[in-house]
Design a binder for these strands. Structure first.
Lengths: 127, 127
DNA sequence: GCCGAAAACGAAAATGATTGTCAAAATAGC
DNA sequence: GCTATTTTGACAATCATTTTCGTTTTCGGC
């Protein structure tokens, strides 16, 4: 893994929530790196391909990334306000998805589950 | 609701699965309509704002729409091959999402759940 | 330490979905 | 029929993301 890619991964690790490619590019430039936007995209692509980071799409269609502590299958509870994300798992959901797929004759069933909310800090700040 | 908007909604109703704005535009033009792409986007925007259609994003970031039979909260089981979608509901998932949010101090919890798979027809065709 | 191939970079151009602009056309109210 | 309002659609503009393509860096020998 190249130095640049390491830098992108580290920038992701330092962030507590999901960040877009553009965000990360801005972060890295802000801390003095001369990295190019293209490289950020390439690094994120590689990292998500190798399963080192999770990707999801915002409602506006922008891709956002996160370095996750667990490499097992899990989902996220994301704060609408600050973007902070908590890793959660739900065996019940996994089973449900599988069962629903099977019931309708679908095979190779996969699923995406994201939970959004306002975290305690952001609720407090909103007062 | 204008005639154009009706046309877009009907095109959606005739489709069995999720369709992108571009798809619908192509469909409408194919059946002789002189509708413009801009109008298709505007109609879909209006329809999704009023909750008459469901929207989700493909992995490539393209927005896809579907006219759903039920106006209650539900999820979709979508075929990766043909795009056909089945409306499903999962009380267990709703409760789980709410519980997980509460456990971590999150309020105003919402969630998105999509299940993907290969439907029986498409599996058969793949042989 | 030095050399060349291969991999990684980055700037700028290309792409593709979506949105904004604005004048023409449909429709409504009178 | 006639003006006021809304809807429409061609076209330009936006914006994230990808491609292209020379340049630079990294590395494995030597």
């Amino acid at each position: 893994m190249s130095t640049r890619r390491e830098a992108v991964k580290q920038a992701l690790n330092e962030a507590s929530g999901f960040r877009s490619a553009q965000d990360l590019y801005a972060d890295l430039r802000a801390e003095g790196s001369k990295i190019g936007l293209t490289t950020v995209y390439r690094a994120l692509q590689a990292l998500s391909d190798s399963g080192e980071v999770d990707v999801l799409r915002t409602g506006e269609g922008e891709a956002v990334y996160r370095a996750c502590a667990s490499d097992a299958h899990h989902h996220h509870l994301v704060c609408r306000g600050c973007g902070r994300a908590v890793e959660v798992e739900g065996p019940a959901v996994e089973k449900w998805a599988e069962a629903v797929g099977a019931k309708h004759g679908f095979t190779e069933v996969t699923h995406t589950v994201e939970v959004f909310g306002t975290c305690a800090d952001c609720s407090a700040r909103a007062n």
